[in-house]
Design a protein around this nucleic acid. Structure first.
Lengths: 212, 212
DNA sequence: GGAATTTCTTGACAATCGTCAAAGCAAGAC
DNA sequence: GTCTTGCTTTGACGATTGTCAAGAAATTCC
């Protein structure tokens, strides 16, 4: 009887504990989301915690309450960004009934993400470069890289499948190719080169059928 | 007569002027070379002028005498780095008499540069990412990117030529592909992944003949 | 409703940043 | 020789950085 009471109390404690943690994590994500705004605008090198705080509804102290240090915050940002990123093309892949439909859906999404989320993408390339210098970022970056590779692979293999074929290259090669093309297009796009997006689309439109 | 004397003096002045400038530029390159050491070690975000000076034989004031500001220094570093970079494979390309010889020469150089100059390469990726945020870097970065694309193209088209073929893809696609692969391998290499180099070589060895 | 705990604000800290100016130094011009 | 000129060192400046601690405010608990 006394044991039952004790274990019940323990369960309640655990539950509230879990609730606390959930709330804590939710707040972290809120802060990370706010931080991403400034990071996308200024880049890793020029972003300070105070600047992040000023461009948000929070004070700079809050960030130190929820994050061990600056690196911890950035890592959280990167991880959070990832989750939104990797499912971007899944609906297109799932709903497309023909090669043409998949191709057009993919290209449309590609153009949209490049146009509307250029800042997030340049932040990603920035942080990936930082991972070349700082161990702390490496684990998350490698993980995201892998997720993106899988994302590209899902599109490509589905595209091949719709044509009764199989991709002619490995997932790694395919990702390297698309990542390189996208990175290049991003730089051109940010340089106000209006041809950036059309040229990328044209390139992909020509390339994909020859590989898959 | 007086005119002749005047013009002679002018010529001398011009000559010494040009000499001064040449000396000035030589010094700039010396400083840039020294700066590249620290930049390659720490990355753009963590490198200050004082740190650069401390890791070199110069005082921090000298850098301000030879460079307008930090950006000017970095730009000079990038440009200088480029010159050393883009001719890396030219000898291999010129001397190879067969596809096999070119392939092996290329792969050997590729492995060597990844192993020995990993720091310079990660700096390049870092600075290219910075160009996504800062206009000042963009011009130089785009130029280097183009040079690297041409470099890759020279190798590939020569390789194809030796087989009586032509590359199946454009220079831009080819560069995107190799750049993506290299970048990925670099991250793995810096993460102490011993498989990074062999896997890159294997990938390229398999890939190149199918494209060119 | 009061006590305890969590969350947030604020201000201060030591360190470091880019920049600049004054003074010292060497070397070539005359 | 002196003098000018260009090169270098040094130290100081204001601003900004990450971090932390003390206390206010809000929330939760009994």
């Amino acid at each position: 009887m006394a044991q039952q009471v004790a274990s019940a109390r323990k369960r309640v404690l655990d539950a509230t504990e879990a609730l606390k943690e959930e709330k804590f994590n939710a707040r972290r994500l809120e802060l990370a989301e706010a931080a991403l705004e400034t990071l996308g605008e200024l880049g890793y090198a020029r972003t300070s915690l105070r600047e992040i705080a000023q461009n948000s509804a929070f004070t700079h102290g809050v960030f130190h309450y929820y994050f061990r240090d600056k690196t911890d915050l950035i890592c959280c940002c990167v991880s959070h960004y990832k989750a939104k990123c990797v499912t971007r093309y899944d609906q297109v892949t799932a709903s497309a009934q023909s090669r043409e439909e998949l191709m057009e859906g993919f290209l449309a999404k590609l153009a949209e993400t490049l146009r509307k989320e250029a800042r997030m993408h340049r932040l990603w390339y920035d942080l990936r470069a930082q991972a070349l210098f700082e161990d702390a970022f490496r684990k998350d970056v490698v993980e995201i890289d892998k997720s993106l590779e899988n994302m590209v692979w899902r599109i490509a293999s589905r595209y091949a499948e719709l044509g009764g074929k199989r991709p002619a290259v490995s997932a790694g090669v395919l990702y390297a190719l698309f990542d390189g093309l996208f990175q290049n297009a991003l730089l051109k796009f940010l340089s106000k080169d209006d041809g950036a997006i059309p040229e990328l689309l044209e390139e992909v439109r020509r390339l994909l059928p020859t590989i898959c």
